[in-house]
């Protein structure tokens, strides 16, 4: 079965990011396909590589990056939500004259159309948020 995952909250602030990650991992382990993981609202904060949690805590950003690498996942950060919250990749940084970018490995920035598209392509869309 094809699942699409929507993550609407940032890591640490709300458990939604952890739940979404655990669900995604369990679905993959059961042999399901993950069409895409889309990060919206404060969920875009899952995609900044500048995240530095204390050493005795999980690093949610790295967990996503590693899972994406292992399973070739498509992790998409919404561009409009990302711009509001200061998540940028190299292209976005250039376009808006910013002096740095902070997108984490395995994530890409794209439009909201990717959210609708994954809803069309997947058998089930799972929303995780506050």
């Amino acid at each position: 079965m094809k699942f699409a995952i929507l993550v609407n909250e940032g890591p640490y602030q709300h458990q939604a990011a952890d739940t979404a990650f655990n669900f995604t991992k369990a679905a993959l382990e059961k042999g399901h396909e993950i069409v895409r993981v889309f990060f919206y609202h404060d969920g875009v904060n899952n995609g900044t590589r500048l995240t530095t949690p204390p050493q005795d805590d999980r690093n949610i950003v790295n967990l996503w990056s590693e899972l994406a690498k292992e399973h070739d996942l498509d992790l998409v950060v919404c561009v409009a939500a990302a711009q509001r919250r200061g998540i940028v990749d190299e292209d976005e940084a250039k376009r808006h004259g910013k002096d740095a970018n902070n997108i984490a490995e395995g994530f890409r920035i794209s439009g909201l159309g990717q959210l609708i598209e994954m809803g069309i392509k997947a058998d089930r869309l799972m929303a995780f948020g506050d």
Binding site: Y40, H41, A80, A81, G111, L112, G113, L115, I116, E117, I120
Partner: peptide, 14 residues
């Protein structure tokens, strides 16, 4: 931001 999804989604003819 929910409204923004609806507006973008309109282009997909669902």
């Amino acid at each position: 931001e929910g409204l923004e999804v609806v507006l973008i989604g309109a282009a997909f003819d669902q």
